[in-house]
């Protein structure tokens, strides 16, 4: 721990974000740095793995160990790093196209596996960096540059999907409410297991439907309705809410053993600290004679 309390600005890189003015990503960037400061993590205590997209561009704006991988493939990189060093704090930043489209398979299996990492998804319901095409979360009928006659496909409901697929921590935040977002990032990070935080994050350039104003009129906090996040059926019902009322907060949480805890080879020292000069395969060689 640092001697002096850490501040949000201790996680700034020399580069200021290149996102559009007013972009919802700024709120997530702020929330993430706030959370790190509040947790007392030094920049070298944490690895942030990024996908590709506007969200992944955050890799140049945060001071921490970073891995800016491939589109859709941030989760497996993060899981590999966590298994190599289970003491390392690992947070994943991705987008909706990145994580629910290109990387959908990894998302499903990460939920099952329950490796202790945190997955924060910037859900702006559109492709920003490639200039405004349909995302897996774009609403039916939306006109985008790749769907000029309107979207036909039903949108993915990320949080309902996460609960159904076996997620042990599923939450939703709104980037227009940084204090709540910060607290949810902290809760997600503290959760022992795979935590999924879907952040509703308006794209001010390409999504003129799901705007800040649109969300402000709809979002409500789950704690205000005394939601029981240990009740999976109730959590699922809340997760399906969209349209007039959109829930934010922890939808579902259960404590179950992490993948690392159940893999007996991971008991003891992290893999990265184990010696490589004492390996002796003579017993196996002998068994082959």
């Amino acid at each position: 721990m640092a001697d002096t309390p850490l501040k949000n600005t201790d996680y700034n890189s020399p580069h200021f974000p290149t996102w559009c003015p007013g972009c919802g990503n700024f709120g997530i960037w702020t929330g993430l740095k706030n959370a790190f400061a509040e947790l007392g993590w030094k920049p070298s205590d944490v690895l942030v793995v990024y996908g590709i997209g506007c969200s992944g561009n955050m890799s140049s704006f945060v001071k921490a160990y970073g891995f800016h991988g491939l589109h859709g493939r941030a989760l497996p990189v993060a899981i590999g790093a966590k298994l190599a060093n289970k003491d390392l704090h690992v947070v994943v930043i991705g987008g909706d196209g990145d994580g629910y489209g290109e990387g959908g398979n990894h998302f499903l299996h990460a939920l099952r596996g329950n490796v202790d990492i945190t997955y924060i998804v910037h859900d702006n319901q559109v492709y920003g960096l490639t200039k405004g095409q349909m995302a897996p979360t774009t609403e039916v009928g939306e006109v985008t540059s790749s769907t000029p006659e309107g979207v036909i496909d039903q949108p993915i409901d990320p949080v309902a999907l996460a609960i159904a697929a076996g997620g042990s921590f599923v939450a939703q935040a709104f980037s227009g409410d940084t204090p709540q977002l910060t607290q949810l990032i902290i809760e997600a990070i503290k959760h022992p297991g795979f935590s999924h935080l879907n952040v509703l994050q308006p794209c001010v350039t390409f999504n003129h439907h799901n705007t800040f104003a649109w969300f402000y009129r709809r979002v409500y906090k789950l704690e205000s309705v005394n939601h029981d996040f240990s009740n999976k059926a109730e959590a699922f019902a809340r997760a399906l809410e969209w349209g007039e009322k959109i829930p934010t907060g922890i939808l579902y949480r259960e404590i179950r053993p992490t993948w690392e805890a159940k893999e007996k080879e991971l008991a003891g020292l992290p893999l990265v600290q184990r010696p490589l000069d004492t390996i002796n395969i003579s017993q196996t060689l002998q068994s082959l004679t």
Binding site: R73, P76, V77, G80, A81, L83, A84, N85, V272
Partner: peptide, 11 residues
């Protein structure tokens, strides 16, 4: 990608 992440972390 898992192998790359693990290798990046030092193993």
């Amino acid at each position: 990608n898992v192998a790359i992440g693990a290798s990046f972390a030092g193993i």
